[in-house]
Amino acid sequence: MSDQTAPQDGAAVQSRADRLAHLVIVALMGAVAVGVIVTALGFPASPDPNDVGPARFPILYATGLLGLLGILLAQTLRQPVAEVAAPERRHYGRVALGMLLMLGALLAIGTVGYFPTAFVLLAGLMALMGQRSLVWNPVLALAITAAIYILFDYGLNVPLPPGSLFE
């Protein structure tokens, strides 16, 4: 993973955006951990007197997480902030579109089934990533969709979603 991540010793600098992101992450995860503890306190005790019950371990994990978040918070606050030259333009809009396409596929696949969903998903993603040829895009999308279908459904006997519309 991010091997270039600076060791959080306070030596390296961080950009303003990174600092904000880390603070948001600490806040979010902290909220989750607190939520876990509150929920777990409502769990019933185990009927077995020797057992610690279902709540013990989640509370333990959440407490550990809170402690670690505290360390991360301290590290982030200690680290000096500086303007880092923006590395290069990154296409975040494209990432968001890709995620939305996947979300659409997730919502559609149950009703319309594998074939149309996979075809549209592939065509959309390929267009997004630069394969926009009016001939190759649909041909490739169709070929891959069919190849995977044949491999799973016939070759391996693993049925893909038929779609509730067509059942």
Partner: peptide
């Protein structure tokens, strides 16, 4: 541009 969409489809399947 073809490989990455294919990987996502494989993830779904």
């Amino acid at each position: 541009s073809v490989l990455m969409p294919l990987v996502l489809l494989l993830c779904v399947v």
